[in-house]
């Protein structure tokens, strides 16, 4: 086997530059797995940014992957808006009651400040600590929920879908307020030392809204917001489809697109080649039951269709490996990517 000669940062930068690095980089996006690593209950684990930083560094040493992931949980953002997180022993925290139950409150809504939001400050602490200890050897990834997708948690998905279709006045005002928040939150992450901000925008996926509506809503929001964050941004639809809006996504200013597991990765690669790098698209839910042999088969399949020519990072499709996925599976993923991901991918012929 050819010895890896690049640092993780060099490897990822090469892939994002649509070139072939020494091997395919891999991002097992580990969140609650960190609690298991430190032997802590999930609630206690997420109580301090230092726990997340420590676990991320330990897990990278253990599995040998190519990123540190500062994302804690989506409901941390909703806490900033007055919402709550509901904790479980065996999965990520979920949002409690939506804080914006009455849509009429939108007209007087003001964005919360990052400095006043303990749940966000914890994530910034995690980024700073990782940056201090890892330097520039490995990319640090962090997350913002897009202003367009955030209302699914702020007000509940049903109320939000009705707002999108029936109250354009309130939608416009909500986007204005959310954009201010997301830009400040994204910039704070960049200032803290993140390498790239992952822009989670599941509502914009054609799985949730039709392209015609996306072009009038989520697309416009993304174009305005991403350019103001001031750092590299990756687009993630959290398992949603993206092929029908690929051309539009390229225009939002992102250089990376995370692929869902319901789409043909080979087809996506063909459409994206030379235009935007891809991340994906292993099925994290199925991964829970995979044997090491099945892991190898899936990794090999993804690399075979998306690896040639570079511009590809192996990962899951949802942005989070479930807590139920064993260390054995993650180890097997690493072994497979090191075995089959070395460039040039001569084995394909």
């Amino acid at each position: 086997m050819v010895r890896s000669s690049m640092t993780s940062m060099e490897r990822v930068v090469a892939a994002l530059s649509l070139k072939e690095p020494d091997r395919v980089p891999w991002f097992p996006l580990l969140t609650t797995t960190g609690a298991r690593e430190l032997g802590l209950p999930i609630r206690e684990y997420f109580s301090k940014g230092s726990n997340v930083a420590e676990a991320q560094l330990r897990m990278r040493k253990k599995f040998g992957h190519d990123c540190l992931y500062a994302f804690m949980h989506a409901s941390a953002e909703v806490e900033a808006w007055g919402g709550e997180s509901v904790y479980y022993d065996d999965g990520p925290p979920n949002c409690g009651m939506p804080p914006l139950a009455d849509p009429e409150r939108i007209m007087s809504l003001q964005p919360p400040r990052v400095k006043d939001s303990p749940s966000l400050i914890k994530a910034l602490d995690a980024i700073r600590l990782m940056k201090e200890r890892a330097g520039d050897e490995v990319p640090i990834l962090s997350v913002v929920i897009s202003p367009f997708s955030l209302p699914a948690m702020q007000m509940g998905l049903e109320s939000y879908l009705l707002l999108i279709h029936e109250r354009q006045d309130l939608l416009a005002r909500l986007m204005e307020v959310n954009e201010e928040f997301t830009v400040e939150w994204g910039r704070a992450q960049v200032d803290a030392g993140t390498t790239a901000v992952v822009y989670f925008d599941p509502l914009s996926s054609p799985t949730i809204i039709p392209r015609e509506l996306y072009l009038k809503t989520g697309f416009q929001v993304a174009r305005r917001t991403i350019s103001r964050i001031g750092g590299p941004v990756a687009m993630h639809f959290a398992s949603g489809r993206c092929i029908p809006i690929l051309d539009d996504v390229v225009q939002t200013g992102v250089g990376v697109l995370c692929a869902g597991c319901e789409e043909d990765l080979g087809e996506l690669k063909r459409l994206a080649k030379g235009r935007i790098a891809l991340v994906g698209n292993l099925n994290g839910l199925e991964m829970r039951r995979w044997s090491p042999a099945r892991v190898e088969e899936e990794v090999k399949r993804a690399i075979a269709v998306a690896g040639p020519g570079g511009g590809f990072i192996l990962s899951d499709s949802h942005g989070e490996i479930p807590w139920q996925v064993s260390d054995e599976v993650i180890f097997a993923m690493g072994e497979a990517v090191r075995r089959w991901g070395e460039y040039p991918l001569d084995w394909r012929s």
Partner: peptide
């Protein structure tokens, strides 16, 4: 099949 969106089905 990915030919319509959830919002269309919901509405």
């Amino acid at each position: 099949d990915g030919r319509v969106s959830l919002s269309q089905v919901y509405m």
